[in-house]
Write a protein that binds this DNA or RNA. Structure first.
Lengths: 217, 217
DNA sequence: TTCGACAATCAGGCCTGCCTGTTTGTCGGA
DNA sequence: TCCGACAAACAGGCAGGCCTGATTGTCGAA
């Protein structure tokens, strides 16, 4: 008997469990939302475009995310997840020893110079005048910063527990955001990279002060 | 700068020349655009709202700015002008001598923490995905940075000509932008101010290196 | 094991409201 | 009188929420 694959659909796996189907379209929608955020900006994120790009129908979207606000709110989490995954993939390759801090800084900078940060930027700015979005963004940001400081010790070593070090690291992150903002504003990426090189020197010197000994680890 | 910064009043002056009328509604529209930018964000800037807030009619708006793009483009210039005026008003009060640099930094920070910067932020981020707006923003930014470096010597003294000093100042400005971004994201202003205090220390130390003598002037 | 009812998932069209550009008409100054 | 400044109504387009129907997976009962 033709038990399993009685009707082979032209496209994909003939039999999928409900959970698989659900998760597939769900993540397709969220990925499409983030992509639209990157490509068209926040006000360019329209359910029509998202649906079109995700390759699903309007009905599917409204089934999973009854309102656009919910779609975007979930996309915020999805984006933070994607950023975390993107970074986690690189953390393993970080050098140990004296070059560790430089490696972490460069990693952080790459993350800020990439498209996912631009997407986050869109959300931050839009959140200023959108209460519902602000709620979602704040919630995710809170958990993200918590994870950052949780992982900071893993990245930087025991100095991360130093209060002054944390302050300086926040300053460094602010500088990166400010430089990444120039990319949105349409500045030449080469020029921005140059400015980062200059800032990087300063940041390294600043953070080095907290290292009891450069050869401590 | 006599007859600006006011919404048009039909009742006040019974006798106005054409040029006065024109300039009045024009600046009323531009001010209203900037205000909408601050209050509703970029995608909340609708001609309907602008017209309503400016106290003029649709016809007036379309007469002065045939397309929304032109209105926004002019508003970009208008905004940069307002920011410049806002700063110029404070420059005169800056102290001279050793405290000069601190005064300038605080002035710059206040400018970044204010609503006009938030408006500029909206435009920068929106410009990433809007070619026409990007054109306008780039043009204005170019002339603004030119003016900044032109006035830098007046603000900081002869050190401003130092190449390394300029780099560090750019880094400092990036840090301010990155911190101001937190305000958009909905962080507590008090907390942001605290972070600025921490960054300020670092920036001052950084800039002081370029001063041949603290008592040079 | 097989079958059928039920629920979940998905597809697509309709409707309402808003935004923008256009056009026509009116008023007042030069 | 003539023209610039302004007022107001109109039309096209699009986004977003709602609804109906089709398809597919799930689960219980014979």
């Amino acid at each position: 008997m033709a038990s399993t694959d009685e009707t082979v659909r032209s496209t994909k796996k003939p039999r999928r469990t409900q959970g698989e189907r659900r998760e597939a379209t769900r993540s397709a929608l969220l990925d499409a939302t983030v992509d639209c955020l990157i490509e068209y900006g926040y006000n360019g994120v329209t359910t029509t475009r998202v649906v079109e790009r995700a390759g699903v129908s309007r009905g599917a979207q409204v089934h999973h995310f009854p309102t656009k606000g919910e779609l975007v709110a979930q996309a915020v989490q999805h984006l933070s997840h994607r950023r975390r995954v993107e970074m986690a993939a690189e953390i393993a390759d970080l050098p140990h020893g004296a070059k560790r801090v430089e490696g972490v800084l460069d990693l952080l900078w790459r993350s800020h110079a990439g498209p996912l940060f631009q997407a986050a930027l869109e959300l931050w700015v839009a959140a200023r005048t959108d209460a519902e979005l602000a709620e979602a963004v704040r919630g995710v940001d809170r958990q993200v910063t918590a994870q950052i400081w949780e992982g900071a010790e893993l990245l930087f070593g025991p100095v991360a527990r130093n209060r002054a070090f944390a302050e300086d690291l926040e300053t460094a992150l602010a500088t990166m955001r400010g430089l990444a903002l120039l990319l949105s504003a349409g500045n030449d990426p080469k020029a921005v990279e140059k400015r980062w090189k200059a800032a990087r020197k300063r940041i390294l010197a600043m953070l080095a002060e907290h290292d009891p000994l450069s050869s401590a680890n």
